[in-house]
Structure formats: structure tokens, C-alpha cells
Design a protein around this nucleic acid. Structure first.
Length: 420
DNA sequence: TCTGGGGTCCTAGGACCC
DNA sequence: TCTGGGGTCCTAGGACCC
């Protein structure tokens, strides 16, 4: 059996922990640049706000009706997430952290010596009491079914936030009420295709022979079908495992034409990406840079331009990554367009130990580079000072909007909550 | 005026090999 | 008219996830 624990309206709930006055008020959290609504408290959902909706479309009406809004505060959310995961790890060490706000627990080692109902409410209450975050829990024989159970636990208040699917007959009865598009792993495209074939609900899909699905669609869908039938076969990639790529990209506060300002943004993102890479203990060999116009603006000429370069030595040196990113920018920049976003992707990682030395290029001293970067990181992480590289720029012309951010209550001493 | 950011896995098809 | 048969590796792009 698997349990899926998923935090309710996670970002909005984080904002409420240190603001008890917001209890029972509609709360939403916006994406970067204060662009879209990405988290809504149940009160905000009731007001009709949709996930991913552009903020400017709903702003006036929402605020006029007493809604509360925050820019995203990832430092806070990451810290609260860690607390939640720590509580869960204590309850069940076989944890598989799937995203910032959800985790699977593998309960198989408990055999049958566990009261699932009791366990579910223990989880729920402990996270609420110790961290202050409300969660929903779904328990079922496979991850896909646990996902579905969790969904019902969230949506139907009669279940008090926990749904356990165990009995085969009950599962089948339940699957009948589930639309195809709500199954984990089936998106827009697949559900449209399946609907065309007359498959409307999860029970119907589970009744198709998995092999037939496998040869006519893909192994991905085949696994989903097997999971619906109760055969566990989907592993998730644990967040604790090393990453395979690192991306840093941002929309600009306003559109940009000049190559010089674009260069600052690309350098800035490249520096951030290099930092993340070092934090992962990895080195990369491939660097990709892209710049693009605003695809929503139909008035302007559209452009998406990108390219990549391979470097000889796997590296995590900010100087090399920034320099390479700028070389790529030179290649992909086209005059006369309005750019609204730039980004960098690092890939082709080699773990720190045991990367390929180059026989012909002895000029690069990787120990010196590692030492320098370690020193830079040391200074920046501890807020002793803030070291950055010249071409990362000091102008703020391209930086994003984030006007209504809450305090970093748990990670900055100067922003700690105060009572009077 | 104003529409996020960061990931993973799978597959088809090209390049190349014997 | 008629032009082998397997393989492997890599990459771009699709689909999906939160």
C-alpha cells in the first residue's frame, strides 16, 4: 500500500502560518513577476479564481471583495516543505518526496500490522499541529490509485481529508466515477484520444488489456492501466536524487530590445545556474541559452531563439559558464525584436569525482577554480557580503516584479515574526 | 500595460557500425 | 524489374507533472 500526502493550497497555507488573522480569508499566491495565480485557499477557489489565471484579469474584483494576495516567497515555502517532510520521514522512513508539497509513503513494510485509518489521521494531525499546514491523504495499493484517493479526500469534505481504497469492489465502483483526464499521467492529448475511442471513465480504461494499450499507445499509458488494476509499477524520481539538468529563466518586468541589457540578464541567470550546480555537487558540459518574445502579445513579431555549446572540461565555474552563455547570446541575438524572457539550461553532468581530463589543454587549473568558487559561495551564503561578476549588471531594468512578498519568517533573523 | 518556472521520461529518426 | 539485416548511440521534440 502507498500513501500520498499532499498539502492543501500549499503556498497559501504557508502564508497563513504566521498570519493567523488571515484564517478564513481568501488568500492567493502569484507566480514570479506577479503574473498568474498559482495557489488559492479554499475561500479563493470559491470566489471562482482559476489555477494559472492571469492576475491582472481578476485583480480588481478579487481585491474589492476582500481577497488577500502575496507574491511568491520560495525561501519560506522551501523551509516549510522541509519541516513537513521531516515529520513524514519520522512516521515512515520509506518516503519518496515527489514535489515541494507532496510525498508518497511506501507502507508495505508494515504488512498488515497497521491501522490505516489511524495512520492517516496521525499524519494529518501531526503535520497540522507541529508545522501548521493542512494536508490530505490518499491510501491505495498503487501510486496512481493513491493519487485518485487523495483527490477525493481534498474535494469531498465528508471524508475529512483522508480516503483509503483497499477493497477491489470499492475501487472498481470508485473508478467508474473518475473522468479519464483526472488520472495521474493522462493529460489533455491522451484524454482526448481516449475519449474518441469511447473510453470516458477510469473503470473503462482499467478494463482494456494493458498489452493492447502498450502496443497502440505507449509503455507510459500501459503502466497507468496496470496501476488502475492494482498492479504497482510506477516508480517516481525522488527529489533527493541528483538532478540531470538545471534551468534558470525569468520573464522580464518589461520587454527589452537592447543586447546589452539582455547580456546582463543572461549573465545573471548563468551565475545563478552555476551556483545551483555547485550546490548539487555537479559539473556540466553543455550550456543552452534561449531568448524569446512574449507569445501572448499578438501585436509584435514573434521570436524564439536558442543554441547550445559544449565545453571541454566539465565545469561549475561561474566565470566559464557566464562567458560561454554570452558567446551563445552573441550567436542567437537578432536585432529589432522585443524580448520578454531569457533563460539558461545546464546539462550533460559529470559528477565531481572522476570526470574526464583533457590531454591537450593543461592551461586550466580546476583546483584553483574550485577553491575560488567555494570562497565566493561561502561569502554569499553567509551574507558576509554579496559577490557577483561584473557583467551580471547592477541595473534593475529587467528584473521581475514582486511587489507583495511576505517576510522570510523562518530563514532570516531580521524578518522573524514579532509579537507586541 | 499586465499571462511562471522547473523538471522527468519516452520515442522516432538520423548517423554510424559491421 | 531487381538493391540485406542487424545493431547502438544520440538528440530533438512530445507529453506530462507540480
Amino acid at each position: 500500500m502507498y500513501a500520498l500526502i499532499d498539502c492543501n493550497s500549499f503556498y497559501a497555507s504557508c502564508e497563513r502560518i504566521f498570519r493567523p488573522d488571515l484564517k478564513n480569508h481568501p488568500v492567493v499566491v502569484l507566480s514570479n513577476n506577479d503574473g498568474c495565480v498559482i495557489a488559492r485557499s479554499s475561500e479563493a477557489k470559491k470566489m471562482g479564481l482559476i489555477m494559472g489565471q492571469p492576475w491582472y484579469q481578476v485583480k480588481k474584483n478579487y481585491l474589492d471583495n476582500g481577497g488577500i494576495v502575496f507574491s511568491s516567497n520560495y525561501e519560506l515555502y522551501a523551509d516549510i516543505s522541509n519541516r513537513v517532510m521531516n515529520v513524514l520521514t519520522e512516521l515512515c522512513p520509506e518516503i519518496d518526496i515527489y514535489s515541494i508539497d507532496e510525498a508518497f509513503l511506501n507502507l508495505s513494510s508494515y504488512k498488515n500490522n497497521i491501522n490505516l485509518v489511524q495512520f492517516a489521521f496521525d499524519c494529518k494531525n501531526r503535520i497540522k499541529d507541529w508545522v501548521g499546514i493542512p494536508v490530505s491523504i490518499g491510501i491505495a495499493p498503487t501510486r496512481t490509485l493513491a493519487k485518485l484517493a487523495n483527490r477525493v479526500a481534498k474535494e469531498d469534505s465528508r471524508f475529512d481529508g483522508a480516503v483509503i481504497l483497499k477493497d477491489k469492489k470499492i475501487i472498481q465502483h470508485f473508478l467508474k466515477s473518475v473522468e479519464i483526464k483526472n488520472i495521474w499521467g493522462i493529460g489533455k492529448r491522451m484524454s482526448a484520444k481516449l475519449n474518441d475511442l469511447g473510453i470516458q471513465n477510469a473503470l473503462q480504461l482499467s478494463e482494456v488489456n494493458p498489452r493492447t494499450i502498450g502496443s497502440n499507445f505507449s509503455v507510459v499509458l500501459e503502466r497507468t492501466v496496470r496501476e488502475l488494476r492494482g498492479q504497482a509499477c510506477i516508480e517516481t524520481n525522488n527529489l533527493l536524487e541528483p538532478k540531470k539538468q538545471i534551468m534558470v529563466s525569468r520573464s522580464f518586468g518589461r520587454s527589452i530590445k537592447s543586447k546589452e541589457i539582455l547580456r546582463e540578464a543572461v549573465s545573471f541567470h548563468a551565475g545563478r545556474a552555476a551556483e545551483k550546480l555547485r550546490f548539487e555537487g555537479q559539473k556540466c558540459r553543455t550550456i543552452t541559452v534561449f531568448i524569446r518574445s512574449n507569445p501572448f502579445n499578438k501585436q509584435i513579431r514573434q521570436i524564439y531563439s536558442s543554441d547550445f555549446m559544449e565545453i571541454i572540461h566539465a565545469t561549475s565555474d561561474s566565470r566559464i559558464i557566464i562567458k560561454t552563455a554570452n558567446k551563445i547570446l552573441e550567436k542567437i541575438y537578432r536585432e529589432g525584436f522585443e524580448y520578454s524572457k531569457a533563460g539558461i539550461l545546464l546539462s550533460n553532468f559529470t559528477e565531481k569525482l572522476g570526470y574526464q581530463m583533457n590531454l591537450f589543454d593543461k592551461s586550466f587549473d580546476s583546483k584553483k577554480s574550485d577553491d575560488l568558487m567555494r570562497t565566493v559561495d561561502y561569502i554569499n551564503i553567509r551574507d558576509i557580503s554579496n559577490i557577483f561578476f561584473g557583467n551580471q549588471g547592477y541595473r534593475n531594468t529587467w528584473k521581475m516584479k514582486r511587489q507583495i512578498k511576505s517576510k522570510r519568517y523562518t530563514t532570516r533573523i531580521e524578518e522573524i515574526p514579532v509579537t507586541r
